[in-house]
Simulated scan of single mutants.
Amino acid sequence: MTTLALQLIPDAIDRFGARVHAVDGHRWNDPTPCTEWTVRDLVNHLVGEHLWVPHLLAGESLEQVGDRYDGDVVGADPVGAWDEAAERSLAAWKSTDLSATARFSFGEAPLTVYADQILVDLTVHEWDLARGSGQPESLDPTAVDYCLAYARANAERAAGLGIIAAPVRTTSTDPAVQLLSLLGRAV
């Protein structure tokens, strides 16, 4: 299953990047489903996440990376910042051995767990970006199925860490709606 996450990450990076490139210039300050973030803030979050990837996959600790990616990492060019971070992240994922472990904010974990989390982050935030910037909201079904299985298995632990919003009740049988609802999005 984790090998599949690693296989899905390049396409997820490309899909998120396509959404970043499609943001109309006047929409960067629009709100997103992540209530504290505008479209620009959301892209800033993903740029920061993907700037971290090469460091963590290379075995660097959080302390070694420090605060260099805190704050505004997109500057005046969110699209260019995303492209650069995505390129670095992709190169790191393509050359990594997922049998290692790394130290994260939540403790030490296998890199396979990190791959799962990055895929979920890309997939769910792709929808957040689409909704916030007025783009079509469809998601890749294979990525959704994988992320839904991961989210179901880890929702209670993630909620306990305070990193996701409380689940939103849904009666939908659509896997994308189930995933988004489980991760606190009202669809």
Rank of each mutant, 00 (worst) to 15 (best):
C34Q: 06
V74I: 14
D77W: 00
G162H: 04
V74N: 02
L148A: 09
Y69R: 04
A91Q: 09
W52A: 04
Q64M: 07
R68T: 02
A109R: 13
D72E: 02
S61M: 04
T123Y: 03
G80L: 11
D72M: 07
L90K: 08
V144M: 01
P31Y: 10
T38S: 15
A149E: 13
P136T: 01
P136D: 12
P136E: 13
I118S: 11
V113G: 07
G160P: 13
R68V: 01
A115D: 01
D83N: 15
A155C: 10
E156H: 12
Y146S: 09
Y69F: 15
H50T: 01
D128Q: 05
T96A: 15
A158G: 10
D140N: 14
G71N: 03
R88E: 11
Y114R: 13
R103W: 09
D97A: 06
A58G: 04
P33Y: 06
P33E: 12
A86V: 07
W82D: 09
T123K: 08
S99N: 13
E60I: 05
A58L: 00
N154V: 06
V39C: 01
T142Q: 15
G80F: 08
L46Q: 10
G132R: 06
G75P: 02
P31H: 12
L139T: 08
Q64R: 08
L139V: 03
G134L: 08
L161C: 05
V65I: 14
E87N: 07
T123C: 05
R157F: 11
D41I: 04
D128E: 03
N29I: 09
V43A: 01
A153L: 10
T35M: 08
R40F: 07
A165G: 15
G59H: 02
L46H: 06
S89P: 00
V120C: 11
H26Y: 12
C147E: 06
Y69M: 04
R88F: 05
Q135H: 10
S105M: 13
H55R: 04
G80D: 05
A143P: 06
L129Q: 03
V65D: 03
G75V: 10
L42V: 00
S105R: 12
